[in-house]
């Protein structure tokens, strides 16, 4: 039974609603009133805006060994997962640009069929869920709380595995297709960083695999650039190397067959920039010109 709060009741509870501190029923009743009351809607929006600023005061404590590098690597891992999920979900509507960083560097041996449908992904997730569900059914009186947590974890793991599998399949297809051109990137400095960039012209997809990349300094990131014959430098995503110095970046960008002058990786402030400022770490031209 859903009720609607009256104006007096709602306006007194708006701050609590903005803080999500009402019981679910009360929250629903207040929001039902807010829907039809422009004054309350405006005030709630202002209160939400104000309370959202409190996020700036977050003080992450409780893990004294947490270092900037640990946080960087966690943020980079979550970034990969988010982008992989977004890419996996975009099977129906192909992405325009997909930068990915990951440790995965699958050996390239033979051409594979092109991107599989999302069905295989669903199958993997479905099987994992079925296993988790049957576990729950079999042990009825066991510690339900622990099982619930495990189901949540299994579901998340299945989702990640399926996304990783789909991403791997796509990556293989993108470096082995008939219309793939290859750019070899090299460094001029002492650390022998190298990379290969595969440009699949049939899908305008760019896949770069790098090795021996030094770690970036704190607050810095690598950024990939496509440089056109006309001198335009197109940012194609930021990335961080793994601890082993490898990286994989994938981007989709349409360029004419003769438009590519070079590919380069620069070091930039964290978050990336739209116009390159940092030194070139590795670079190469099509056909090694």
């Amino acid at each position: 039974m859903r009720r609607e709060a009256d104006h007096q009741e709602a306006s007194e509870a708006l701050a609590a609603a903005a803080l999500d501190a009402l019981a679910p029923d009360d929250q629903a009743a207040v929001l039902a009133h807010v829907d039809g009351c422009p004054d309350c809607a405006r005030e709630l929006a202002e209160l939400r805006e104000a309370t959202a600023h409190l996020a700036a005061l977050a003080v992450p404590t409780g893990a004294p060994d947490r270092t900037a590098a640990d946080i960087d690597s966690r943020l980079a891992r979550v970034r990969s997962n988010v982008l992989a999920r977004a890419a996996a979900a975009a099977v129906d509507a192909p992405p325009r640009v997909v930068p990915i960083t990951s440790a995965a560097s699958a050996p390239v041996t033979a051409p594979l069929p092109r991107v599989r449908s999302a069905r295989s992904l669903g199958l993997v997730a479905g099987m994992a869920l079925a296993v988790a569900a049957s576990l729950v059914a079999a042990i009825t009186l066991a510690d339900r709380a622990v099982l619930q947590r495990e189901v949540v974890a299994s579901r998340a793991a299945a989702g990640r595995a399926a996304a990783a599998l789909a991403a791997s399949e796509r990556q293989l297809a993108l470096v082995t297709g008939p219309q793939v051109a290859v750019v070899s990137l090299t460094a001029s400095g002492a650390p022998k960083a190298t990379a290969l960039m595969f440009w699949d012209r049939s899908t305008d997809t760019w896949s770069m695999y790098a090795h021996n990349l030094p770690q970036t300094a704190s607050g810095r990131t690598y950024e990939l650039w496509l440089i056109t014959a006309a001198g335009r430098k197109i940012p194609a995503g930021t990335f961080a190397p793994t601890s082993a110095g490898t990286a994989h970046v994938q981007a989709t960008y349409a360029l004419g067959p003769a438009d590519l002058q070079a590919v380069a990786v620069t070091e930039e402030p964290a978050g990336g920039v739209d116009v390159a400022t940092g030194p070139v770490v590795i670079a190469g031209t099509l056909g090694g010109k």
Binding site: R79, A86, A93, R96, V97, P99, G237, G271
Partner: peptide
């Protein structure tokens, strides 16, 4: 609009 580079940038700005 489905631009995943924008998602990457958005993540880099807000993560």
């Amino acid at each position: 609009a489905g631009d995943q580079l924008a998602l990457a940038r958005f993540y880099d700005r807000w993560s």
